[in-house]
Simulated scan of single mutants.
Amino acid sequence: MKCLWVVAFLSVFPGIALGGAPSGESLIEGMEATLWSDSNHGRFTMRIETEYWTRELDLEAWMDRPDKTLIRIHAPKKEAGIGSLRIGDAMWNYLPKVDRTLKIPPSMMLQPWMGSNFSNDDLVKESSFVDDYTHEVTGSEEQGGATTYRVVSTPRPDAPVVWSRLEFQIRDDHIPVAMTYFGERDRAIKTITYSDIDSLGGRQIPTVWTMVDADNPKSRTVIKIEAIEFDLPLDDDLFTLRRLRNPQ
């Protein structure tokens, strides 16, 4: 009888695991909702650092999850106006200097975006952590007064992803600490860390995101969130090729 009660309880509250620990799926869902919500609009700086040079981009981005993302560069001047648009599984880049719109094939989604350590997919979020992976909590520890869970995510059968697995560190308030991407032979490829938690858009979020290549720690890209709004209505006309080419 007791076993039947436990099964019934878990069917009503699937985000709670035995012992009171959250499930891996609920942690990932909470993290995605914290970082992106259903829609968002923000201003960001992206600093790309290599062993030999550093450059900084001023970005504006709109996201209407799960299907639409628009990113536009405002500075520096030589790259101002460049934009990226995703609708579903299709992505385009617009190059204003030559007035060309280029469709990005699926094979290029993991290529660096504007020479950064973030891929096209990282920026426009074509893949979905919740939909494309299964998630298991494999451990936890106390960090800075919060419980941080280790979540291992493995691809679902036939999911359109290339990573052999992902490893997350997520706090119990759904704020991410880090995520590592693994490739062939289970080799770590890159890691993103989240820091500088602050109140923006009416919620506590990490405002600095740092992506570092595993085989070249001197190559990194730092995104800083300058301002962001969540759950605002976004016009469908914003996510069109016409608006990609002409922001007015």
Rank of each mutant, 00 (worst) to 15 (best):
N117S: 12
N246L: 10
W62P: 00
L4V: 08
I175N: 03
H74C: 02
V212L: 02
M108V: 00
K103C: 03
V137W: 05
I192T: 15
M91C: 10
S107N: 00
D196N: 15
S23Q: 10
S116Q: 05
G145K: 12
D213C: 03
P155N: 11
W62Q: 08
A33I: 01
K78F: 12
N246R: 14
E51L: 03
E226N: 14
D198F: 02
Y181V: 12
S153P: 05
V130I: 14
T147G: 02
M211R: 05
A214N: 12
I73Y: 04
I197G: 05
S127Q: 14
R47Y: 00
L102H: 03
G83V: 03
H41F: 09
G24Y: 04
D198Y: 01
I223Q: 10
Q248K: 14
E141S: 10
L234T: 05
G145F: 08
M63W: 02
D235W: 00
T45Q: 11
P76Y: 10
E136Q: 14
M108K: 00
V98A: 13
R220P: 03
E142K: 14
R243G: 08
D172L: 01
Q169D: 08
R165N: 02
S199Q: 14
E184Q: 15
T240H: 11
V151Y: 00
G88E: 07
M31P: 06
M109I: 06
L4Q: 12
I71C: 00
E167M: 13
A214F: 10
A80V: 04
K78Y: 11
R55T: 12
R165M: 14
A21W: 07
